[in-house]
Design a protein around this nucleic acid. Structure first.
Lengths: 216, 216
DNA sequence: AACTATCGATAGTGAAACTATCAACCTTAG
DNA sequence: CTAAGGTTGATAGTTTCACTATCGATAGTT
């Protein structure tokens, strides 16, 4: 398969295929001459995965590269892979969270019986949100925390079940990566549906015509 | 309060204050001379809110502007405000989702008794993720859908409760906006904690030392 | 009077994610 | 066999985003 066919099959431009290859997201094809390189179905699958992570999961090219590297390492145990996957959607927090917010997150963890290593990126992420609630003068919004945690538990169980059902190590690895990265988006979508539904149920008289101007 | 004091109080540079003012995220201060403008505490609060939405919620400046405009419009009913808030984190989907995925999302909605208007951005978002699962050859990952929906329901109820507890219209409006935008991040964080916890519970022997290299 | 701060306007910067161009060089239809 | 067209890696250019810097005019401060 030549680059134009690969490009066609995967739905990305040849220039982009080259770019991803340079950046190390796609393995180089098999050179068969000065200007001939042979690609295969594995390349097509890889490109589709990349596009899904970038477009649907909103990952950066650099994050996607790191994650794919983890999948490609057959030595890496699943636990470590999960650690890599979790870094997606967790852009390096700069100002680290306050002790107070960290303590609140830890108290929720204790309440749910959650145990992780202390560097889990989700802890910083959650604590950062609590700090943000404080900084805008809305500490009351943090009251949702236990119920969010209950929801997170349900999702995490579903995630791990999906990984277990996947079969061999490589498919499990893929499920970890994809489930974590795209799962955030899926959950966000469902949350929006549920929110509007709840809103309609509680305020049946609310005007919603402003939402008609979708087509702009 | 002069711009340097505002800048100090809110933790953003004077240049950035000017930029946000130009872009319409912050109302102009009260001019008191050719080169004097007076700002107040409302400006400080607004800037803190902006920083929270952009840094913690990862919203773009343009999306933040649109959302703030909705808060500022006292005519806009809460339902319409929710619609605006929901557009955050829902970057215009370009290729619209397949009928098959839309149908799957709708079937979950029916199962949970969810009712929304058809243009709800979450529907497209969720269906897009299902399409992505298909495109990478992992339709099995969509089996998590009902359990994700259960979790979304719990979160949405917590969200609406928080809005109701907020008091007057303006605080409710703020809760809708902030809860939707930052809630995604909070949920993502908690999900990561719960995931690792589940993983540790199920695979107690998994090596996790690769996660020690946090400080890079 | 000297110094510093501020004003709006405009130009510049740096990162990210592509996209275009290039000259050299195969492949293949006619 | 040859001409048209596809392919190669390298490199340069483009676009968008979110700021950041500079400017000349002017105002308050010591």
């Amino acid at each position: 398969m030549k680059i134009s066919q690969l490009s066609q099959a995967a739905g990305v431009s040849p220039a982009t295929v080259k770019y991803y290859t340079r950046e190390g997201l796609v393995p180089a094809g098999k050179r068969t001459g000065y200007n001939q390189t042979e690609y295969d179905d594995g390349h097509v699958a890889r490109l589709r995965l990349i596009r899904a992570l970038i477009e649907v999961g909103s990952l950066s090219v650099a994050t996607t590269r790191d994650i794919l590297k983890a999948i490609d390492d057959p030595q890496l145990p699943l636990g470590a892979l999960l650690g890599e996957a979790q870094k997606a959607g967790t852009q390096e927090r700069q100002g680290n969270p306050s002790d107070r917010s960290m303590a609140r997150v830890e108290s929720v963890m204790q309440a749910r019986g959650w145990k992780t290593h202390p560097g889990n990126p989700g802890i910083q992420l959650a604590a950062g949100v609590l700090d943000a609630y404080d900084s805008i003068g809305r500490p009351d919004l943090a009251d949702t925390l236990p119920r969010y945690a209950e929801a997170a538990d349900i999702v995490a169980k579903a995630d791990l079940d999906a990984v277990e059902r996947s079969g061999d190590r490589d498919r499990m690895a893929e499920a970890v990566i994809v489930g974590t990265a795209l799962g955030d988006t899926l959950l966000a979508g469902l949350r929006r549906i549920a929110q509007e539904s709840q809103s309609v149920r509680r305020y049946p008289h609310a005007a919603r015509n402003s939402q008609e101007r979708e087509a702009r």
